[in-house]
């Protein structure tokens, strides 16, 4: 088995440079690569383009990178939970490209499946369609959307083995599998790193071929954005 293990987040991101394009997995704060985000903040690279469904909150997730002014452009579907984000956007310090969530996921998927583009009806007849090719199939219009290109994809999984095979847990899966497939270099941080053979091949969500570096993360905060409960 090929060994993909690196010592930790700092080694995993050591060749990420300013100006690069990164994919970051997660939905809200659920399933985000906490350790790698902390390492990127420590390293201080800037002018990054970040492809991620959301932009974190003021003091967690990608919000930590925004606060350090490390992000030049966000490509997201929803960015509502972050005051610093809003400030930078309104003062033109930050570029934002908002795209439909399914389009975001499928442009990642296309990259991982080796397809240059996809056709989706999402955004037809809206400002999302501006400047894009429209094709009619069976009487319905579709937009051509290009596969993403990212220098690095950074994902978070529940379990992984040293060969890079990944298993996600619950809805922390979200964008992680499609982004894992889409990076030129994919970094996976996992809660539990195990030896080959310990994961059932039938249960693998992301085959190790897509993963270039893996490490066991530590001190996961797993912050909850909207704690909603019922009483017994």
């Amino acid at each position: 088995m090929i060994n993909k293990v690196v010592s930790g987040a700092d080694e995993a991101i050591k060749d990420i440079e300013s100006g690069m394009t990164l994919m970051l997995g997660g939905f809200g704060l659920c399933g985000i690569p906490e350790n790698c985000i902390a390492a990127l903040v420590r390293k201080g690279v800037d002018r990054l383009t970040c492809i991620s469904n959301n932009a974190g909150v003021d003091d967690f997730g990608i919000g930590l990178m925004l606060k350090q002014r490390q992000v030049k452009k966000m490509i997201s579907s929803y960015v509502g939970e972050n005051a610093e984000f809003e400030r930078q956007l309104l003062s033109n310090e930050l570029e934002v490209e908002l795209i439909p969530q399914g389009t975001l996921a499928t442009r990642c998927m296309a990259a991982g499946y080796g397809m240059p583009a996809i056709f989706t009806p999402a955004g037809v007849g809206t400002e999302v369609a501006e400047g894009k090719e429209v094709r009619n199939f069976n009487g319905k219009d579709y937009l051509m959307e290009m596969a993403f290109k990212a220098d690095f994809a950074i994902v978070k999984a529940w379990k992984g083995d040293t060969a890079g095979n990944l298993i996600y847990r619950s809805t922390a899966r979200n964008f992680n599998p499609v982004m894992a497939m889409a990076g030129k270099i994919t970094i996976a941080e996992v809660e539990h790193l195990v030896e080959p053979g310990e994961l059932d091949p039938d249960q693998i969500h992301t085959p190790g071929i897509y993963v270039h570096r893996i490490f066991e993360g530590s001190d996961y905060e797993k912050r909850i954005e909207q704690r909603t409960v019922r009483t017994k």
């Binding site: 997201s76 960015v79 509502g80 908002l98 439909p100 969530q101 999402a122």
Partner: peptide, 8 residues
Amino acid sequence: KGMGGAMD
């Protein structure tokens, strides 16, 4: 804030 999944 964005369209989230609404357009899809």
